[in-house]
Amino acid sequence: MRAADEQDYLDFATARVGALYRSASLLTTGDPHLAEDLVQETLGRMYVHWRHVSVADNPAAYAHTVLVRVFLSHRRRRSSAEQPTGALPEGVATEEDATLRLTLLDALARLGPRDRAVLVLRYWEDRSVEETARALRSSAGAVRTQSSRALGRLRSILGDSLPDLTRS
């Protein structure tokens, strides 16, 4: 990579790494090591294709798509089921925040990786159904079905434990 391209890439990676890490943390339900691995691999893939990626419409969105695909292929490669790490996400927060975080991450951890990917793309990254479908190489109909089914599962796991901000 030429020096100018590399600087360009480093600027991009530095600007996006935080957001990628947060997405990865949600996908891995708070496993900091795996989240870091996924982001590193995502940035590595972006590096290899940077000359093409850098002129694309939205390199940032592309990076998140790559991340989700890396996550899903990582899940496929790992033949064993979910590996609970017991590791808590890092960072300091209020007790109430910490409880909410654990509850939500616990609940997400009980979903399959693809369900989780759909929810993270739709509700964390605010992607449209169509964009989510493209990222997952799926159809809009399948994404809608998967999304509502995953939300239903979460609802049965979480019950009323999510705060209703309109009431506070």
Partner: peptide, 26 residues
């Protein structure tokens, strides 16, 4: 809303390390 609140809290200690790891991976 909860997902946003949760996601915003998840920040790594060392972003530079991850970027450098990404460059090395690439």
């Amino acid at each position: 809303q909860s997902l946003r609140d949760t996601g915003e809290e998840l920040t790594p200690h060392d972003l530079t390390r991850i970027v450098n790891g990404g460059v090395a991976d690439g």
